[in-house]
């Protein structure tokens, strides 16, 4: 089974893959923590969140397959596309780093995902709306978990505060991309399928600003400028994620597991 090339995917398919790829790659990153977390409770929590994300990815790939109409499976999308065909935002592929990096990345993403899912519960794509309704509940838990840690670490010791500042500085540049509206998104917003990023950004900002405030950390002012994920132009990290993730399917093409 060879590499899957999607020649000019429809905006609807493209949008579903963006959503799904975000979920899969973030879930993959979080799953790397399993067995290595700072405490047993966090091993369990991070694995739990990873599972939520991977579960959402699977439902979204299923929906993508229905739209696509070529009988592809979730695994075709996950295991047979190269990095240039992956459409996740850059934020989710950033390395786990220390626990502060993981928490900051998670809060930045989950604070975006929560209003996104909330808006998508009203999507004209009813299957997507149903997935969003389930994911919204999970995202609420993710925001609480990462928000609590954001505050604990920001308002903890000098060391934890310094680590949080470093993590924020390294991840903030990737937050602007979350609210980009290209032709794919704008068209689908018009059709009532996609959520409008312009409406999500202030909600995201509100959640994140409250966490910064309570943690006693300074929120950067400039809008994050790093972008490219939605058109398959990734950081150098994604290739390694996919090498790991896809190796068995690539080494034994066509086998079922």
């Amino acid at each position: 089974m060879s590499t899957l090339v999607l020649s000019s995917p429809s905006p609807h398919l493209n949008y579903l893959l963006r959503l799904a790829d975000d979920q899969l790659i973030l879930g993959h990153r979080l799953s790397e923590w399993t067995g290595h977390a700072p405490m047993l409770e966090e091993d369990i929590a991070l694995a739990n969140i990873a599972l939520d994300h991977i579960g959402a990815a699977r439902s979204l790939y299923d929906r993508a397959s229905e739209i696509h109409g070529e009988g592809l499976t979730e695994d075709d999308y996950a295991y047979r596309r190269d990095a240039r065909a992956y459409l996740n935002c850059l934020l989710v592929e950033r390395p786990n780093g220390d626990f502060a990096h993981t928490i900051v990345r998670q809060l930045f993403y989950s604070a975006f995902a929560l209003p996104l899912w909330e808006a998508l519960t009203r999507s004209a794509d009813e299957t997507l709306a149903a997935i969003a309704a389930k994911s919204e509940k999970e995202a609420r838990y993710h925001v609480r978990h990462s928000g609590d840690w954001f505050i604990r670490l920001g308002d903890g010791t000098d060391e934890s505060r310094a680590r949080m500042e470093a993590a924020i500085a390294s991840l903030w540049p990737y937050t602007g991309e979350l609210f980009e509206a290209d032709a794919v998104v704008t068209g689908l917003v018009g059709e009532g399928i996609a959520a409008d990023p312009a409406a999500i950004e202030p909600l995201w900002r509100e959640t994140v600003a409250a966490a910064f405030e309570e943690a006693g950390l300074a929120m950067p002012i400039a809008r994050g400028a790093q972008t490219g994920g939605r058109s398959g132009r990734h950081t150098e990290h994604l290739g390694f994620i996919l090498a790991d993730l896809q190796y068995l399917q690539r080494a034994y093409p066509g086998a079922s597991w």
Partner: peptide, 9 residues
């Protein structure tokens, strides 16, 4: 975990 051969697995 990162190398499991299908999303279900």
């Amino acid at each position: 975990i990162t190398r499991a051969p299908s999303l279900r697995r």
